[in-house]
């Protein structure tokens, strides 16, 4: 502390106490301190310090600051990403739940539609079957009626034919004459 004080006093060239200054100078000389060399060393040290500070520490500090900033940015980005990831996971979960609900709705709707379609198909099949049965009954009735008509016609033809043959054989000449006379009267009256 005292040496520092002496040094400052020497540099500022303030008129110190000449007695004390001389004593300090003597003391320093006794320890081998040479003021010009000391000052040169101090200046040299200052220059070196300045150069080191300007060309080494300052870029180094700048680099450190940039690195710190990058780290901070990275951490902030990481936090943001974590938050976004959490939001994304939340959104994914919500959408997944919504999709599951929608899928469940679709499944229920599909089941309902399938049931309706099945019922409708069954009703159509029943209707078609009933229609086929109705047509078959109608066709059967028509065929039956046609057969009856044909049978009736055939029976009538046979009856008339047999009756005609019987009458042709059985009617006597007198009977024919009487019938013919009656027919003549019928036409002319």
């Amino acid at each position: 502390m005292q040496a520092t004080y002496l040094f400052l006093a020497a540099v500022t060239n303030a008129p110190p106490d000449t007695g004390a200054f001389a004593q300090v100078g003597a003391l320093l000389s006794r320890f081998g301190v040479n003021w010009p060399s000391f000052i040169a060393a101090v200046v040299n040290f200052a220059l070196v310090a300045i150069v080191l500070y300007w060309f080494a520490f300052r870029p180094l500090l700048k680099t450190l600051d940039e690195r710190n900033a990058r780290i901070a940015d990275g951490l902030r980005f990481s936090d943001e990403m974590k938050a976004k990831l959490a939001d994304a996971e939340k959104l994914y979960a919500e959408r997944l739940n919504a999709a599951a609900a929608e899928a469940a709705d679709l499944a229920r709707e599909a089941v309902a539609r399938a049931k309706i379609f099945e019922e409708r198909a069954a009703q159509e099949a029943i209707a078609k079957a009933n229609d086929i049965l109705r047509r078959a009954d109608a066709q059967l009735a028509h065929d039956r009626e046609q057969m009856r008509a044909e049978l009736r016609t055939e029976v009538a033809r046979l009856v008339v034919e047999i009756t005609g043959k019987v009458l042709s054989k059985e009617l006597s000449a007198d009977e024919r004459a009487r019938f013919t006379a009656a027919a003549t009267t019928e036409i002319t009256n």
Binding site: V159, G164, E175, F179, T184, I187
Partner: peptide, 27 residues
């Protein structure tokens, strides 16, 4: 037995054959 008379396009039939034919048509 009976008589059938045709005058032009008109026919007057009072025969058993005609009666049988009408009977067949009716049946």
């Amino acid at each position: 037995a009976g008589v059938r008379v045709r005058v032009g396009d008109d026919v007057f039939d009072a025969s058993i054959r005609n009666a049988l034919d009408r009977l067949a048509a009716g049946l």
